Amino acid sequence: MSRVKSAFRTPWFWAIIGIALLLLVNTIKNPAYLAVSVNPTTGLLTGNVLDILRISAPIIMIALGMTFVIATEGIDLSVGSMMAVGGAVAMQTLSTLDSNSVGAMFTAIGLALLLAIVLGAINGILVAVVGLQPFISTLIMMLAARGIARVITDGQNTNATNEPFRQLANGQILGLPTSFVLAIAIVVLIALTMRRTALGLMIESIGINPKASRLAGIRPRPILIGVYVLSAALAAVGGLFSVSEVMTVSVGGTGNLMELDAILAVVIGGTSLAGGKFSILGSTIGALLIATLNKTVLFLGIPAAATPAFKALVIIALVLLQSERVRSFAFSRTKSSGTPTGPATPAATESTPVSKEVVA
C-alpha cells in the first residue's frame, strides 16, 4: 500500500497514466491503432507506436537540456532556434559536400554541434558572468539563432541527400527508430554522469541556494555556463533528428515553439520551475507524453485552430492530477461522504472544545 501511495505522489506516474489514456482513446477510435506491421518495401516495422517513438526523440533531447537549466532556476527559450541552427548547418554542409558518405554525415553533425556549443556558451556567459536574467538572455538568443539559421541557408528551405544521415530518423535498431534509441542512449549516459558524480548535486544546490553553494566551495559560473552549453548541444541534436526525417530544414518551421513543449515536458516530469531537484526520468516520460499528445491531435483530426486548446485541456487535467492538494481534497471529500451519521464518539466530543479554543 505504501508503494502505491508513493507512486501516486510521483509526478511522472500521472504522465504514464496520461499516455495510457491517450492510447486508449486512439484505440477506441481505431482498434488496430497499436498494431505493428512489416513494410514489404523496406522490410522495416511500421505502426503508430513507432511513429510516436520517432517524433519523441527531438522532444526528449530538448527536454533533457531544459531539465538542467530549470534545475538551476533558469529557463532556455532558445532551444527551438538551436534546433533550426543545427538542422541548417547539417543540411547546408551536406548539400555543399554533395557526398553520400558516413564522413560527410559526421562532418555535418560536428559542425552543427560546434556552432550550438558556441551559442550555448554565449547564453551561459550572459547569465553567469554578465548577470542577465535567463529569460532575457535566452529570448535574445532565440531571435539571434533563428537569424543565424536564415543566414546559413540564405533564408531558403535547404535539402540534401545523404543516406547515412537519413537513417538517423528513418532507420531502425532492433525494431525501434534509430533516433529514439540514440536519444535514450544519450539520456542514460547523461543520467549516469549526473548521478554517479557530484555534478548533479552541484546543479541542484545552485538551484536551491546559489549563495550557500558558493560558500560550500561550489563555483556556480562554470556550472551555469556548462548547463547552457549542454542545453544548446542537445537542442542541436534534436534538430538533427528532426531534419533527418525529411532531409529538409525549414528555417521558419524547424523547432518552432518547441521550447514550449520542452518546458511542459520538464514540468510534467516533476522538475520545479523554482529550481533545485530535477528528474531525468520524469522529463523523458513527459516528452513521450507530449509526443503522444501531438500524434493524438493529428489522429483524431482535431482542427488546427482548436489544437492548442485541446492540448491545454489535457495538460491542465494532468497537472491537476499531479497536485497533491487537489488529490487530498478529493480524497477527503470521498472519505467524508462515506462517514456514517450518528452520535459523536467520545474522541470527537473531546476534540470539539479544542477546535473551538483554536478558532477563538
Rank of each mutant, 00 (worst) to 15 (best):
A121R: 11
N100F: 09
F165C: 07
G120A: 11
A121D: 11
F165K: 10
Q133N: 12
A149Y: 03
I136Y: 06
N157P: 04
L114P: 02
V129F: 10
E163R: 13
F135K: 06
R166Q: 12
M142Q: 10
G124R: 04
A104D: 02
M105E: 01
L113N: 05
I148H: 01
R146Q: 13
V151C: 07
L132D: 01
N100L: 15
D98L: 14
T161F: 09
L126R: 05
L139A: 11
V118I: 06
A128F: 08
L132G: 07
Q156M: 13
Q167E: 14
L168A: 11
V151P: 00
D98N: 14
N162L: 12
A144R: 03
I122E: 00
S137V: 08
P134M: 12
S99L: 08
D154F: 12
R166L: 11
I122M: 08
G103R: 10
T107C: 14
M142V: 07
F135Y: 13
L114R: 12
L119E: 01
M105L: 02
M142F: 09
V102D: 15
F135A: 12
N162W: 01
I148L: 14
L168I: 10
N100V: 14
G120H: 14
A145K: 03
L119D: 02
A144P: 00
N162H: 07
D98W: 05
L168H: 01
L114A: 15
A160D: 00
A121K: 11
V130Y: 05
I140N: 02
N162P: 02
L119T: 01
L143H: 05
Q167M: 09
G147S: 11
F165R: 11
F135Q: 13
L111N: 06
G147L: 08
Q156W: 14
S101M: 06
G110I: 07
G124D: 00
T153C: 11
A160Q: 06
G147W: 04
F135N: 09
F135C: 15
P134N: 04
P164W: 03
I140P: 01
P164N: 05
L132Y: 06
I152P: 01
M105Q: 01
T138Y: 08
L115P: 00
N157A: 13
M105W: 00
T153N: 04
A108T: 02
L132W: 05
L126K: 03
D98P: 00
T107E: 14
P164K: 09
R150Q: 15
V151G: 00
I152E: 02
L139C: 03
V127R: 12
N159R: 14
D98I: 13
S101W: 08
G131P: 00
N100C: 11
R146H: 03
A112D: 07
F106K: 05
L143F: 11
T138W: 09
L114Y: 09
E163T: 06
L113G: 06
S99C: 14
T107R: 07
P134R: 07
R150I: 02
L119W: 05
A116L: 15
A104I: 12
N100P: 01
A121W: 06
L115V: 11
A145F: 06
N159G: 13
I148S: 02
M142D: 03
T138Q: 08
A104R: 07
A121S: 10
L114K: 09
G120Q: 13
R150N: 13
F165S: 05
I136T: 08
N159F: 10
S137I: 10
I136C: 07
A108F: 08
P164H: 04
G124V: 01
